[in-house]
Simulated scan of single mutants.
Amino acid sequence: MKNFEKRLTGGHPNSLGNTIEVVNDVLQHHEYFEELFNCYFSDDEVVRLRVSNAMKRIAKEEKQLLVPYLNRFLNEISQIDQASTQWTLAQLFLLLEDGMNQDQMSKARLLLQNNLANHKDWIVLSQTMETLGQWAKKDDNLNAWLRPHLVRLSKDARKSVSKKATKTLEILEN
Score class of each variant (00 low, 15 high):
K2D: 13
N3L: 11
E5Q: 12
K6L: 15
L8V: 02
T9D: 06
T9I: 06
P13V: 09
P13E: 05
S15E: 11
T19Q: 11
I20P: 06
V23P: 06
N24I: 05
L27V: 07
Q28S: 13
E31Q: 15
Y32S: 05
C39I: 12
S42Q: 09
D44N: 11
D44Y: 04
E45M: 09
V47C: 04
R50Y: 08
S52W: 03
S52T: 06
S52R: 05
I58Q: 01
A59L: 06
K60V: 03
K60A: 01
K63L: 10
L66Y: 06
Y69C: 11
F73G: 00
N75R: 13
I77E: 13
I77F: 11
I80Q: 01
I80R: 03
D81N: 15
W87H: 05
Q91M: 00
Q91V: 11
L94Q: 09
L96K: 09
E97R: 15
M105F: 15
S106C: 10
K107E: 15
K107W: 13
R109V: 13
Q113T: 14
N114F: 11
N115I: 11
K120R: 14
D121C: 04
V124L: 02
L125Y: 04
S126I: 14
M129V: 02
E130T: 07
L132Q: 05
G133S: 03
Q134Y: 15
A136H: 06
D140C: 04
N143M: 13
A144R: 14
A144S: 14
P148S: 02
V151H: 12
R152H: 15
D156I: 00
R158T: 00
K159A: 10
S162T: 00
T168A: 02
T168G: 02
T168S: 03
L169A: 00
E170K: 14
I171Q: 06
L172H: 00
E173V: 00
